[in-house]
Design a protein around this nucleic acid. Structure first.
Lengths: 281, 281
DNA sequence: CCATCTTTGTGCACGCGTTCACAAAGACAT
DNA sequence: ATGTCTTTGTGAACGCGTGCACAAAGATGG
């Protein structure tokens, strides 16, 4: 109010909280849907419901962008779509390269969501010579050797890594060296990049494990006791540690309850620590 | 109702912070790698580096699980692998169904990370009759009609949705009705589920948009704050939509911005609000 | 058995994000 | 105009997560 939004109260450019940025795409999607139905305006309440968030949170989020609503009425859909798009930088064209054209890479290449929001697949790159030239999603796959050239020619600043874990860091380094400053990583590895480069990761395995955790917790609650406490700490890590000896089998200590599946496959090995996010191509 | 379910009241005595749970899989991966190299023990500092987190944070995270370390030495790798696996519920078998066998669904089915951590693909389901019986990743695709039966027969409690956005909610409802209580959603839609059901979403488009935002900001800083204050406020929402403004602001930044001269592009269409996460099968 | 050195476990403070609750702003009817 | 009603925008409180800094625990060496 006082400041209203006169001279971008500093809350502006640098201000938008990360959490808010992460939700803008969500609002944008909901708004786009409304726009297609020719809905002229929406209240924070309605839009919040559509986006699956709290209305107060939504209003606060929008407040970081400026005062784009009208009290007593709501927000103008079209206008808001434009404002958010602009804020997210979707009004410009973002050429993207996808490295690693395995199952996942191909799926990404075909993903319609790319093109629909200002993202353009500038090239598909794979290390397998057999893939070179092969068309995927209408685009001919190019060999890794061309990577630097492709990045430069197309002014690519966003790269998507869908290679096996083992190749991810190397690919990442090359992308960064070539000028890419934002990376979306699908490989199950922690990438190290220099300052100034953003990395976001999407990890299937992790998501499933988190679900498993909650699932287990739910199951435990239902049936009387999670027991946890029992084996919790008492399991005397003291003797189990034996550094030099490195007790070969850690399993024996906590008998724990018999798992439903009983499949104590625990000892899986996976040749490379963690399986690639996608087939090696 | 609402998008329901997110965090519980937190009254949980055995309450491991959500943020910690989300990192456990990360630690587990790093530990598994060490285990394969037969490294007996590791310090919080080393492990933290491998997992890409702060060592203090790692120690605090582990403290929620109990005191599994030895001062002056570090943590016993094997023992910790076991403890975390147990905590995450990975010592048991989790049958999973994947619904929507398009490009993405197929990629997921082939994803090695599934089997390697106690997750077992119990079935692949698709609505397209043409897909039925077709083997994907060594498993015959089954028709949606069988969904309920499959869930029941296999005791599935985790479902993965990789269908187009339009079918997601319906599939979700059926999964939940059939007994699934955890869902990993790849479709670009907000799913509403009853309380007690957990939903985690993986949204490609959103990740890219977030990257674009930062990318834009970075570009803007380089050249000297573009600052879109231009079309800032009141400008009658109605006509303001005409993105003539676009030209004014972010022009000089993007290295490429091959955007069509006619900034009017803004209205990129995207017929269905948001394209499916994967090709329709 | 004692001294020293290493590394964990955690108390504490800080900052971000969420939520509540309400005054102000505007639409709309009279 | 004026009053009523709706909905925004935001101040303030609260809670979670993060990171610092350090005491305690235990290993190691003499």
């Amino acid at each position: 109010m006082a400041t209203g939004r006169t001279h971008r109260p500093a809350t502006r450019s640098r201000g938008i909280p990360e959490a808010t940025v992460a939700r803008l795409p969500l609002y944008l999607r909901a708004l786009t849907a409304l726009s297609e139905r020719s809905v002229p305006t929406v209240s924070s309440e309605e839009l919040a419901a559509a986006a699956g968030v709290n209305s107060a949170k939504l209003r606060k989020d929008f407040s970081y962008l400026g005062s784009y609503g009208t009290r007593g009425v709501g927000y103008d859909v079209e206008y808001l779509v434009y404002q958010i798009s602009r804020e997210l930088g979707l009004t410009q064209d973002w050429p993207v390269v996808i490295v690693g054209i395995g199952n996942l890479g191909a799926a990404l290449a075909n993903y319609g969501g790319f093109a629909s929001r200002g993202f353009r697949v500038a090239a598909l790159i794979d290390a397998d010579p057999a893939m070179t030239g092969k068309p995927v999603a209408g685009i001919a796959v190019q060999h890794t050797d061309e990577l630097e050239q492709i990045i430069a020619d197309n002014g690519v600043s966003i790269g998507v890594i869908a290679t096996p874990a083992g190749a991810a860091q190397q690919v990442c380094d090359r992308l960064v060296a070539a000028g890419v400053t934002s990376i979306l990583n699908f490989a199950p590895t922690v990438l190290s990049v220099p300052d100034g480069v953003d990395v976001r990761k999407v990890d299937l395995s992790i998501e499933l494990q988190i679900l498993a955790f909650h699932e287990q917790r739910k199951a435990g609650e239902e049936t009387g006791t999670p027991d946890e406490a029992a084996s919790a700490q008492s399991a005397a890590p003291a003797d189990a540690i034996t550094p030099g000896a490195a007790a070969a089998a850690p399993a024996p200590l906590a008998p724990h309850r018999a798992a439903p599946g009983a499949g104590t496959d625990n000892g899986r090995q996976g040749p490379d620590g963690d399986v690639p996010a996608v087939m090696p191509a």
